[in-house]
Nucleic acid binder design. Sequence first.
RNA 1: GGUCCCGUGGUGAAGUCUGGAGUUCACGCCGGCCUGUCAAGCCGGAGGUCGCGGGUUCAAAUCCCGUCGGGACCGCCA
Length: 579
Amino acid sequence: MTKRTDYCGQLSSDDIGRTVTVCGWVAKRREHGEYLAFVDLRDRTGIVQCVVDHAHDIRSEYVLAVTGTVRERPPETVNTDLPTGSIEIGEATVEILASAEPPPFQIDGRVEVDETIRIHHRYLDLRTGRMQQNLRSRAAISAAIRRSMEDQEFVEIETPMLIASTPEGARDFVVPSRLSPGNFYALPQSPQLFKQLCMVGGIDRYYQIARCMRDEDLRADRQFEFTQLDMEMSFADGEQVRAVVSEAVSNATEMITGQRPESIPEMSWLEAMNRYGSDKPDVRFDLELVELTEVFSGTDFNAFKASSIKGIKVEGGADMGRNQLDQLTDKAKSWGAKGLVWIKVGPSGEVTSPVAKFMSEAEISGLLSVMNAKEGDICYLVADDWRQVVHVLGLLRLELGRPPVNEGGLRFLWVVDFPLFEDVDDDGNPLPAHHPFTMPHADDLELLSNSSAPDDLLNVRSQAYDLVLNGWELGSGSVRIHRRDIQQQIFNLLGINEEESQEKFGFLMDAFRYGAPPHAGFAFGIDRLVALLVGEENIREVIAFPKSQSGADPLTNAPSSIDTAQLNELGLRVLPPAT
RNA sequence: GGUCCCGUGGUGAAGUCUGGAGUUCACGCCGGCCUGUCAAGCCGGAGGUCGCGGGUUCAAAUCCCGUCGGGACCGCCA
């Protein structure tokens, strides 16, 4: 085989006169009779035009080694759209290294291709400029992050993939044990416990670019398996952790955009929920939630006799038709709202609304003044308990105003002061908002010990924090509990008794007997960061071999059945499908 | 577990609401012509189980039911 001397996209006028050999795929053949044809050859660096005679049998996606002399193109034939457009490889001789059937879709990106077909033939899809760029950007981002962590003196440590299943968190992927039939490993949802053990082990600063698996339903921003930057540091508080992570994501951002983001602002969880109806607010646009409970405190309107009322005003949104409004209302109901009230403001301040007749003049004028609503505006109101109100309006806000992924810049945000507990389960046990190793806020430790009233518990703040970018949760972290007594107290509150905690987390509790340093950490999703930085709204576009929404891989046909011998070896029997 | 959208030559779309001959457009593919193209051009051609199954009808890509696949979202994701 002829040896490559140069890459297609790197040839320039500096190379004029050189005899070169380039290797790659035929992007395009333009034939002008038997003795003249232009063959565009593509490799990872780009495309260069080769001038070939007798090119009739050289077809799209053939793999060639082309040898010829780099020469300047005649001035009138320079192609300014192509980086190599001022030169060409002349008098080229072609060695066909592999022929190719016509691909099932065009590689040139001229027509959009159905994603299933792309993934089924991913090895062809990877040839497209889009995937080449996305995967190279991803590699650059990973490298920048790794470099940043190394510069900050973090130590990369690998943690096991086959671990014990723990009851908390997402559904585990599970691997049957051959040597211990009937027992199972779990694949890690995160290296959480191991990195805390590293802190007890005096590693001081740990990081890992770690694959994590969670058996939950897939979404545009969620795959079964995903990649995180996982980190943990000893003798550090949340502020220091956020500084380290800010540095890493800033470096990654600069690597792609050429611009370093400004320092990342912080917002409390409560403020985020009240203003944006989300713990991962997309702050690229306003449409903030407006507090209206007071305005309707004495209302006769039954639907508004609720503990919380908030609204959103869309400026100039009064041209919404009845049909659209009905659809919005249906959506709101599907999100759990009892209803959605809309009020349009007309030319002289009069309002149009199906429920206007149930509101007093004072309520209407109060509403308009608090929301600062003017002619042509529309207000959407939801009344319920606070959680439901902010939840529904948060989703409505995104529905009404969220810009496309490419617009509005990159708005990083730290959300801090999460509550320690999210809610209370049916048995009255509080449910952890983060994970059970999260340190409560120092000022709220008293609330924790003195009180068993669920309302008080829900007000306990934790030292947990999330990093948000354009409405996507990039990741979360916390200051950890490093004291056995507090950890046991939390387990008790969660309804995990000593016996159970010893069984599930005994190794961690044991480790804490021997001098655990205060420590804190974080983990963020690299797939999501890459997607947003390269302007993709789906992480499958930045994953080489992703799975479909139903968890299948159209390329390899996973998941697949296994044969009986394998099952027997593992001590497993497959039940008939439930009907 | 739920809601919504999509499935038509190799690819992408239109046709579906309002049933009437597999009809149309762009790209690709094959053959011919063509010595400066680069979204090459011109001429010709091939290529279809309208995802699948059932039903309604004289007649179904089109209407109804079911099912499969894909996607977006709610739930879920400590």
